[in-house]
Design a protein around this nucleic acid. Structure first.
Length: 476
RNA sequence: GCCCCCAUCGUCUAGUGGCCUAGGACACCACCCUUUCAAGGUGGCGGCACGGGUUCGAAUCCCGUUGGGGGUGCCA
């Protein structure tokens, strides 16, 4: 049980966990851990979400993926907002009893008409002193006091709002149910939240919440509004237009460490990153250094290209064993893991995401004797020179006696190509296309070594035939 | 409409009055290395939105303009 500050993270379950939410969660998490406090997970379970427990589970899984684990002593929850329904109502009644709220029977239409008449923009406080009680169709409204409300924001400093610009907002609907704003504040009070760290979009509603905290007789929490994440159009990331679901990045083979590191560099720079010439920083350092006061004030574009670069760096940072283990999970079950392990070191440096692994090594796992599917452009280019087919035929001869190590295979190709006055860069092309079907791939001789003598020679022979040349027969 | 926030290379940022000839990262370009492609190395391109102040001195402080974003429901 921790005794420090209590940070709340309150995502609404929608079946997808937003990358922006992930960043905010990370902010709360870093602070909760460093300050010896608690990360309180609260699920804003709507009617819709209550019928889909898998959505809540999705949030927990997503948090776990980025290292925010329910098993950690700094983690509390999940709490469901619906569990506090009675407290929401009780708080509303208390507000009414204390004179901080009043009932109103105007319909939306009537409010609009009155606003038009008086040239106002919203509700005009019509029922403030009409002494109405509860009743069907009566909404409970908060009596916004006169004066100014100042929000002390850890990221932005003091932000002040004229109370006269805030209309008497609804607390309880005509059917008696509480609105989100009220529920939110009551939950925070009930859960003894001390720090509210969330996205900037909530800043304009914060004065209402702070007034509620005060009217309910509590000291408001420390507020912090971090900038939102935007797309290339500079619009808030939206689920419709943009790739915002964390699960989509997981499926694409992005690494949690890379995602976490990248997300944290949006709006904040780890100290020492500039001197080091790298923004790749382990979580331990981030947790030790992250401060709300250092967070930028402007929105940040979520740049997948940079994420990809981070991801490539993290893949390269893996130990060989770890890489084989992680990358192996991307492979079809039928593919021989030992064979993959042999080539793995040669592809580890060539990846952006783990998902690209199968395509890089598939040629090693085609069934013996299967026809190679040549990429047309690769074939045309590799076999355009007239020396290509004859050279390949000579290579077959030379490889018949090879000891079948990468070094030997390379030396023998070099001996052959010398007769044609061709450089290695060019000479390897027809061999590569013949064996892998493509013009690019892992280092050639290492690939051949792993593929094995028989299958390699078979593919070379087939290619010479396909190129219209005379293939030497290969002895059994 | 009203309210709030924001404004440094294409992007993410460092910068809190002199250390700025504005630094780093990603992207891009060139060269080196090289067994294709990568990785790595070196170098390059590229920015303080604009206009007024304040000051000996402003990317940094103030005001305004412009531009962008967000909020403003008996949605959450």
């Amino acid at each position: 049980m921790t005794t420090g500050p209590r940070f709340r993270f309150a995502p609404s379950p929608t079946g997808s966990f937003h990358v922006g939410g992930a960043r905010t969660a990370l902010h709360n998490w870093a602070l909760a851990r460093r300050l010896g406090g608690t990360f309180v997970l609260r699920i804003e379970d709507t009617d819709d979400a209550r019928n889909r427990p898998e959505w809540t589970q999705g949030i927990i899984d997503a948090l776990a993926w980025i290292g925010i684990s329910a098993g950690d002593p700094h983690f509390e929850g999940p709490h469901l907002q619906s569990e506090y329904a009675e407290a929401h109502i009780a708080a509303a009644h208390k507000l009414f009893a204390d004179g901080h709220a009043y009932y109103c029977d105007l319909t939306g239409e009537q409010i609009q008409e009155r606003a038009k008449e008086h040239g106002l923009s919203g509700y005009d406080g019509h029922s403030r002193d009409r002494g109405l009680g509860p009743g069907t169709g009566h909404v409970l409204r908060f009596r916004v006091p006169e004066g100014t409300t100042v929000i002390h924001d850890l990221v932005r400093g003091d932000v002040s709002f004229e109370n006269s610009t805030i209309e008497d907002f609804v607390l309880l609907r005509g059917n008696g149910t509480p609105v989100f704003l009220l529920a939110n504040v009551v939950d925070d009070i009930e859960m003894r939240i001390t720090d509210v760290v969330r996205a900037e979009e909530h800043l304009p509603n914060t004065p209402k919440q702070q007034m509620l905290w005060e009217a309910l007789g509590h000291e408001p929490p420390r507020w912090a509004h971090v900038p939102v994440l935007v797309n290339e159009q500079r619009k808030k990331l939206s689920k419709r237009r943009d790739k915002t679901g964390l699960e989509l990045y997981i499926a694409d083979g992005y690494l949690a460490d890379a995602m976490v590191n990248y997300l944290m560099t949006l709006g904040w720079t780890p100290p020492g990153a500039e001197a080091a010439g790298s923004e790749i920083v382990p979580w331990s350092e981030i947790e030790a250094a992250f401060r709300l006061e250092d967070v930028t004030h402007s929105p940040a574009f979520f740049d997948v290209k940079k994420l990809a670069a981070f991801n490539g760096d993290y893949i390269r940072m893996m130990s060989p064993d770890e890489f084989v283990e992680r990358a192996g999970q991307e492979l079809p079950a039928a593919w021989d893991r030992n064979r993959f392990a042999a080539i793995a070191p040669h592809i580890q440096e060539r990846l952006t995401t783990l998902r690209e692994v199968p395509d890089k090594v598939d040629f090693l796992f085609w069934p013996d004797g299967a026809a190679v599917e040549y990429d047309q452009a690769s074939w045309d280019k590799a076999f355009a020179p007239e020396w290509a087919a004859p050279l390949l035929a000579d290579v077959i001869d030379a490889y018949g006696e090879a000891s079948w190590t990468a070094d030997d295979l390379k030396a023998r190709l070099e001996a052959v190509m010398a007769q044609y006055s061709i450089k290695l860069g060019k000479a390897q092309a027809p061999v590569r296309v013949a064996v892998t079907g493509r013009a690019v791939g892992p280092p050639l001789f290492e690939s051949l070594e792993v593929l094995g003598r028989e299958e390699t020679l078979r593919r070379l022979v087939n290619a010479v035939s396909a190129a219209g040349g005379d293939a030497p027969s290969v002895g059994g």
